[in-house]
Simulated assay, not measured.
Amino acid sequence: MKIAVDAMGGDFAPHNIVAGVVEALREQNRITRLFLVGDTPRIEAELAKLGPRDPRLEIVHATEIIAMDDPPVQAVRRKKDSSMCRAIDIVKRGDADAILSAGNTGALLTAAHLKLRTLEGVDRPGLACLIPSPDNVFVLMDAGANLEPHPINLVQYAVMGSLYSRQIVGYKKPRVAVFSLGTEEMKGNELTLEAHRLLKLSDLNFVGNIDGHDLFANVADVIVADAFVGNAVLKACESTARLIGRYLKEELKKNPIRILGAFLARGAFNAIKRKADPDEYGGAILLGVNGICIKAHGASSPKAVKNALRIAVECVEGQFNEHIVEEIKKLHDKLQQTKSA
């Protein structure tokens, strides 16, 4: 399989991106060709620090970079020779199976939607991310792609999110829930109420509504929401994790006894850190476009880039998009039968 990587996207590009790519190639023999797209001299300089070059690497020069604060639509239209756009073009031509970028999220979603188009039967693509909780890892979708969805979009997100949960996380029958104001069926707005009704008609393992209280209570494995709510939930989770970490550090350093206790409990702290480490999950994936599109965090470490490439490999190898088309068709047939009846 072949993967295109935006080497210039992200807060620590190209250093972390190139280092992550090199780590991934050392572990992944399933990648037959990897295109590093960006400023050739800067990429060459990073590769020179990392030992002998893997023969599967190919540098594709791009003269422009889409900055993190560039307006997404304008950037995609005006910076046609940007590393991000050139990497997506490689997928569009069929020369690569997947694209990975840690760059401007809005620009990546816009470019992928415009250039790759949606899969057959998919109305609007959505961004799916993995969030760890004490007893399970759940898929949150949409985490930032579609601010004004229709109810059927949420239902399609549930289908794609369930497939992602089965194929990547390994849950045989993922539980699906709609994020709402409360768990009662009658609570919510027009969007969530109609999505709830349609999901009850589907063949998914739909468990109803979920609210913020039960987010980490192992109630659902796939949680669907519009992009505004989903992104707010994601950012709130990230900031809460940072806040708790800061509180712990401050309190544990206040006196020698606490410092000793922290030392003795370092194994437990390291285990918690590993469970909550976003780098373990690589990045989010834009589901519903023609091609595998991975969005890594802007501050991705080499480890995060390596794991994001692992997810890309698993999706390509598992023919993920082909399965999406099949599952969406089954959904449409099911809803049409119900409507006819």
Rank of each mutant, 00 (worst) to 15 (best):
I31T: 01
L57V: 15
D279C: 04
P71C: 07
E185T: 07
I65C: 00
F216P: 02
A7N: 10
P72M: 10
D95I: 02
E322R: 13
K254G: 00
F269D: 02
H15I: 05
D277A: 04
R86Q: 09
G245A: 04
L57Y: 08
L252T: 01
H61G: 09
A158D: 03
S82M: 06
D97M: 13
D333K: 11
E326T: 14
A236K: 01
D211C: 08
I3W: 06
E194C: 02
D95K: 13
V91E: 05
L287S: 04
N255Y: 05
A13N: 11
A62N: 02
K172R: 15
K187S: 04
V178F: 08
V229Q: 05
G208W: 05
I131Y: 08
K115E: 03
Y171H: 10
R266D: 12
R266K: 15
S300Y: 07
R77W: 11
E27N: 14
S82R: 06
T183Q: 12
G9S: 07
C293F: 11
N104H: 08
L50I: 05
L25F: 10
F269H: 09
V222M: 00
E27V: 08
D279I: 04
I285N: 02
A308V: 06
V137I: 14
T118Q: 11
T338V: 10
T192S: 12
E238A: 12
L154Q: 01
V139M: 09
A217C: 07
D333W: 04
M68I: 14
G51H: 09
V233A: 13
V139S: 09
I285R: 00
A225P: 04
L100V: 12
K303C: 01
R30L: 09
S202W: 04
M186K: 13
G182F: 07
R258Q: 14
L163F: 07
I66D: 09
E23T: 07
K79N: 10
A220K: 07
N270W: 10
I131E: 00
Q74I: 13
V176Q: 03
A112M: 06
L100F: 15
C293M: 11
A195P: 06
I324R: 03
V229G: 02
I223T: 08
N218Q: 10
G103N: 12
V137Y: 07
Q28L: 14
V219M: 13
R78G: 04
I257R: 12
A177E: 01
V169D: 08
G106Y: 08
V325T: 15
N16T: 14
D69T: 12
V155T: 12
E322W: 02
D135L: 14
C293N: 00
V325K: 15
